[in-house]
């Protein structure tokens, strides 16, 4: 297994190139604060969608509680940075760890359930987290947590997104990832082949929750203000829409989905009364004509194995 293949080097160069290009454009003012804010929204949505895709798209566990992990991350980082005055790195670390711990605790009992039952259990989990937030005076209850310092910048955002994509796409291709995919394809067959299904389901859940926690931290430390309602049931649905829209089981699909839906949404800002109507119609039409999502379960690859430009859509 060679790490320094042409393909990997090209990818690394491209990643760094984009990073410095955006940094440069921001400094000279071509990327203004409006575009920056939208890039933050897109970046956070990419992290949420890719991490939910691991749970729902690859492992096949229908979760409606992803926003709850984001809430845990947002509040953990909010408490660390605003209340205890810790640096952002501590906030992000605590956010990711507490969210994944919650994923573990909730995963052990609920992931023995399947299909609809799991969906309802995760839905309940989301409500529990929201209600805890509402009744906790330390974090402001329904009033919310205000004046969280803004630490999220392009560097934090970009490398969090890259780390999420890198780790999850490599996980999916690994021995463990294939075990997860086998659960999605046929849980009984996977179990018969000796795959410890509960273990892998929980593993996927914990990893997904870990990144959702990071997304929550980025959110809290960019928008200054969080309240429990922000991370309600509808937020979970929004994330799920991105995953289904992009294609279940396609990481590039989730990225494309997050970008397209954010772009559509910001275009429609100019049509205030019809905004959500048009948005819904667009979603509806795309799902009717492309029920498998924009990318299906395919991945978009920029480089082929030898490192040449391919630009093709290929099967996993």
């Amino acid at each position: 297994m060679k790490i320094l293949t042409k393909k990997n080097i090209y990818t690394l160069v491209l990643v760094l190139l984009i990073y410095f290009l955006v940094l440069l454009l921001s400094n000279v003012g071509i990327i203004d604060s409006y575009i920056q804010l939208n890039m933050v929204i897109v970046g956070i949505n990419i992290i949420l969608a890719v991490s939910l895709n691991l749970i729902t798209g690859f492992t096949g566990q229908f979760s409606l509680g992803h926003a709850a992990f984001m809430a845990i991350g947002a509040y953990a980082s909010g408490i660390m940075t605003a209340k205890l005055g810790q640096p952002f790195i501590v906030g992000v670390a605590v956010a990711a760890l507490s969210a994944s711990l919650a994923g573990l605790l909730i995963g052990i009992p609920t992931l023995r359930l399947r299909g609809d039952y799991l969906a309802i259990a995760t839905l309940g989990f989301g409500e529990i987290i929201k209600i805890i937030g509402l009744n906790n005076d330390y974090v402001g209850g329904a009033i919310g947590l205000n004046d969280i310092p803004r630490y999220t910048n392009w560097t934090w955002l970009y490398f969090s997104v890259i780390a999420t994509i890198f780790i999850i796409s490599n996980f999916v291709k690994s021995y463990h990832g294939r075990a997860c995919i086998s659960i999605r394809e046929d849980e009984i067959a996977a179990e018969a082949m000796g795959v410890n299904t509960t273990y892998y389901k929980i593993l996927a859940f914990v990893i997904g929750a870990f990144f959702a926690g990071i997304a929550g931290a980025l959110y809290a430390n960019y928008f200054y203000f969080i309240k429990p309602d922000t991370f309600g049931f509808m937020k979970s649905i929004d994330i799920l829409v991105i995953v289904v829209f992009g294609g279940m089981g396609s990481i590039t699909g989730s990225i494309v989905g997050a970008v397209i839906l954010s772009v559509i949404s910001s275009f429609l800002q100019g049509f205030p009364e019809l905004r959500m109507v048009i948005y819904a119609v667009i979603l509806f039409l795309i799902m009717v004509y492309r029920p498998q999502g924009v990318m299906g379960d395919k991945e978009f690859k920029l480089f082929n194995k030898e490192g040449g430009l391919s630009g093709n859509v290929s099967s996993k």
Partner: peptide
């Protein structure tokens, strides 16, 4: 006039725009 969809992050987005 713009619609912030009753979401606080979207309200920030609309202000910025």
């Amino acid at each position: 006039k713009m619609d912030n969809t009753s979401d606080s992050a979207e309200a920030a987005n609309i202000s910025e725009r």
